[in-house]
Design a protein around this nucleic acid. Structure first.
Lengths: 339, 339
DNA sequence: ATTTTTGCCTAAAACGTTTTAAATTTTCAT
DNA sequence: ATGAAAATTTAAAACGTTTTAGGCAAAAAT
């Protein structure tokens, strides 16, 4: 049972494959194919279970109906949730999704972009970039390629993005901590710290302190390198808590840091820590619903990021929007307070 | 700056594009192209940054160098971890991965398989199937298409699969519970219960009971429908615990059930529950490291499942292995005991 | 009764590769 | 030198579409 081709349908009906192609693509009317003929073609096509060859079509039209999603780590629930919703939104419009992990490696990101975009394998890209300066996106070809950045945007780079309002979320959760009486908050950040979302979170944190005239101390912002989170957190956190005994809150700037902290708590016993330490984290993961000490967190609108970025990239693909102003979408986060 | 084509290289060197194609594809030697010419071609190709057009190549050869991964839900960490490792293994061999969520919907699975496999978009598929009888895989075309099932296999269906040893894991964890003194274990299963991994877990559970001459009671195996887990767990769990007060352990058959149980515990307060209830779960998630009551769990070899399924599907693709015996890989799980 | 318009349809080229079959050039033995 | 054999190289077809440019009737306008 061979695959049905346009030609098979054409032969059976004694028409040209041109005509069949037109009808199949819904252009029958605009090319003035009679209703009767269109009907015949569609019936025969479904009878023979015709499905167009994607590669031939892509070769001819330069369109693949694929969208790529590049994230640092697909096994991070933050990204996999976004992936899920993006896929759904794309599927609704007849597009398929290719997910690739960059492993927070800019070289791998570059290779993938080259492969997927320059090669025109995908019609558009959704990217959580690891790049700091966006240099890899400054080629002529890529500048007019449909790309939507998510989670992290590139400063000084006119590009479309859909991100959470990291500043607002961080400001609000810090504000909440302060309202709960915290005066000496220890913040944990993760390198590479040039990533826009992290920078904005730090800024929100600092500005909230400023609002209440609490001086920011550099030693209260610890930086952990992303590829050795567990160990560094253990090391540095224990040290700080031992030397600086009036820390009254810990604020982790992403979910990995939070998990690492909780592990340290576990290991050393929560009670050994000063009693009234509050814990807060950017990102909201399932875990936080179950864990003591109870954690307040900033939930990002994952579904919205996924859906909106997908729709935006489709819009870019459709509109061939040369020269249009880039769309910058900043979505509100919500602070989740647990008793 | 137009894309470089085979023809561009050919023209610059005054050779045919046939020759260039041969050299680029590493077939220079076998076609007897002189070393000198090969050298020239490769140099010029890299000078002009030639990369072949994937679609033209796929159209001509019928090979796309893509592999599809179909899972029930990419946002489930179980699957997203597998995805990560599969992607890595594939990338190492020059293949890319397309991940698609089926949402545990057999119709969507069918559509995706049709699109990806029958359409030859991908060269092979890795699938966590929702199908119970495998009927959608029994077409002539699919029977000889490179498919590796993961997580769940299809009984009565000669197919390649890579799965965890669900029976062994379930047997061992039940055994462990019994050793801890439990005599009245409540097991929570999830529908659709025809899924092989779940059936094997149930069997392991029952056989472990049998080993110690503990009679299996049907009312100690509760079934929860997968699309309403949270509510049903709350409802049924509370009821059972109230009526049947000598339950001394709860064993959830997957990670979703476990999370739902923990939520119920949270809601009603752990202390309200009989003190000495042990909690066990198939699957091992991050959460379990942090939660009280402490949970024993069965960890599946996620990395291995991802890597091995990827390698297997590549082997199938390469070997055009008609008629070869299907590979059935059953990987040991490990029971993780927390004090 | 011829020309023009309209309505419907088609042949052929094009997309960028790979592969087949054959052509050309070189080398070697005579 | 000459023909056969060996070593290189190539033209053209093929993969399955979409699109361009146009063809041919039938209907309408002159």
């Amino acid at each position: 049972m061979k695959k049905t081709l346009l030609e098979d349908i054409a032969k059976e009906l004694n028409v040209s494959k041109t005509l069949v192609s037109m009808v199949i693509n819904g252009k029958g009317d605009s090319y003035g194919i009679s209703k009767k003929t269109q009907q015949k073609v569609l019936e025969k096509a479904s009878e023979l279970q015709y499905t167009p060859n994607v590669f031939a079509r892509a070769l001819r039209t330069g369109k693949s109906n694929l969208v790529g999603l590049l994230v640092a780590d697909i096994s991070n629930p933050f990204y996999s949730q976004i992936a899920k919703y993006a896929e759904k939104a794309l599927a609704a419009k007849g597009y398929n999704l290719m997910v690739c992990s960059t492993e927070e490696d800019i070289e791998r990101e570059k290779k993938l972009v080259q492969l997927l975009a320059e090669q025109q394998i995908v019609d558009g890209l959704i990217i959580a970039t690891t790049s700091n300066d966006g240099s890899i996106y400054k080629t002529d070809r890529l500048k007019k390629f449909p790309i939507v950045f998510i989670d992290r945007y590139l400063p000084d780079f006119a590009a479309n993005y859909v991100v959470a309002d990291n500043y607002q979320g961080s400001f609000e959760i810090t504000d909440l901590l302060i309202h709960k009486g915290c005066k000496n908050i220890l913040a944990l950040n993760v390198s590479p710290a040039y990533i826009s979302s992290l920078k904005d979170r730090v800024k929100g944190f600092k500005d909230a302190l400023k609002k209440y005239n609490i001086p920011f101390k550099q030693e209260n912002l610890i930086e952990i390198s992303f590829n050795n989170i567990k160990n560094e957190v253990r090391e540095k956190l224990v040290k700080v808590l031992n030397t600086n005994t009036n820390i009254d809150a810990i604020y982790t700037l992403n979910n990995h840091l939070a998990t690492a902290c909780l592990e340290v708590f576990n290991e050393f016993g929560i009670d050994k820590l000063k009693n009234k330490i509050h814990v807060a984290s950017f990102d909201d993961i399932d875990l936080f619903n179950f864990v003591k000490p109870s954690i307040i967190s900033v939930a990002q609108p994952l579904e919205k990021i996924g859906t909106e970025s997908a729709n935006l990239v489709l819009k870019l693909i459709d509109s061939k929007s040369e020269g249009a102003e880039p769309v910058k979408m900043v979505l509100r986060t919500s602070v989740i307070s647990r008793n």
